[in-house]
């Protein structure tokens, strides 16, 4: 219990740190956010009186520390301000975009995990060293392939040439397939590399020999003995994988013109819509911290060796 509280405390500190860092980077920039509302060529001709009023309306004229405290308190209530561009509350803009991205990321994560697992499993199962090496070389290839290029290739082949799926991802399952695959492939690379290495180490462990000596066949040895031991360490990568999914979503959603957090990020950064950008930074920080917290807290539950033992048995 103490352990969970400690981890929770650390998670909160990370979120607060992310808020502070994003505030410093975004709000204390030399350019005033109000200026950015106007096209560059009109900025010189802004009426100073109107500028002052707008600054006052958004609260940008007060001292930095006061702005910080106000925004922190507001953020604690879930209020990250309103979009400078659309006037929509940040929380609402993110809330609208989030479900689309969650569906995309979840599909991509499932695809990536299955793909990575099959690579690791097959590479360990095969007896032929040549085939095994061939399959083992797939993950590094995936890692090094640029994802924007991959997305474009996928659209070119499957939408324009084969016409199987729409190039622009709308609602429904058919529109989800291509972006999910495009997002899954680069994410599966690092997972596959990790699993492959773990499978090989675990497969070389003496308990595998014990299992064989019971008369178990190779496929079952992999499924019942190696799989769990090899995939547990992959859990610790959860936070990093979520980060990769969100980063990948920006590119994928832009390429497939799919509404979601990625598109929202792209638009907000392009328009220098500071409140939205900060909202997204906070969302990513919270996701990251939550995943890591869940992994930390649940790890002792899935690995019995980490459970606190109150009494041992001795001969």
């Amino acid at each position: 219990m103490n352990y969970a509280l400690l981890k929770l405390g650390r998670a909160l500190i990370v979120v607060w740190g992310a808020f502070t860092a994003s505030f410093i980077l975004l709000y204390l920039m030399p350019a005033s956010p109000i200026e950015l509302l106007f096209p560059p060529n009109e900025r010189a001709s802004i009426d100073p009186q109107a500028f002052k009023e707008m600054e006052h309306a958004y609260g940008f004229d007060r001292p930095a520390w006061q702005q910080y405290v106000d925004r922190l308190l507001a953020a604690l209530h879930g209020d990250f301000g309103t979009s400078v561009g659309t006037g929509q509350p940040v929380i609402k803009a993110i809330g609208e975009a989030l479900p689309n991205t969650v569906i995309l990321a979840a599909c991509a994560l499932v695809l990536a995990s299955l793909f990575a697992l099959s690579i690791a499993w097959v590479a360990t199962y095969l007896e032929s060293a040549r085939l095994r090496n061939l399959i083992s070389s797939v993950p590094p290839l995936l890692v090094s392939f640029p994802s924007f290029l991959l997305g474009l290739i996928i659209i070119k082949v499957f939408s324009f040439q084969l016409g199987w799926f729409p190039p622009i991802s709308g609602e429904g399952l058919r529109g989800l397939v291509l972006p999910a695959v495009a997002l899954a492939i680069p994410v599966s690379g690092p997972i596959a590399q990790l699993l492959l290495r773990n499978f090989q180490t675990e497969y070389a462990s003496p308990y595998v020999l014990t299992s064989y000596s019971k008369g178990t066949r190779k496929g079952k040895v992999l499924n019942t003995e190696v799989l769990r031991n090899a995939s547990l360490p992959a859990l610790t990568q959860g936070g990093i994988i979520v980060g990769e999914l969100l980063a990948g979503a920006v590119i994928t959603e832009t390429i497939f013109s799919r509404a979601g957090i990625g598109r929202l990020t792209e638009d907000a950064v392009r328009a220098q819509d500071v409140p939205i950008v900060q909202g997204i930074v906070m969302l990513v920080a919270v996701c990251f911290v939550t995943v890591n917290f869940i992994v930390d807290v649940s790890y002792p539950l899935v690995d019995p060796r980490l459970k606190a033992v109150s009494k041992g048995v001795t001969a």
Binding site: P206, Y207, L209, T210, S211, N229, D303, P304, R305
Partner: peptide, 11 residues
């Protein structure tokens, strides 16, 4: 097997 310490599946 030789080494009982590592010859059983730990999980």
């Amino acid at each position: 097997p030789q080494d009982p310490g590592v010859s059983l599946n730990p999980v």
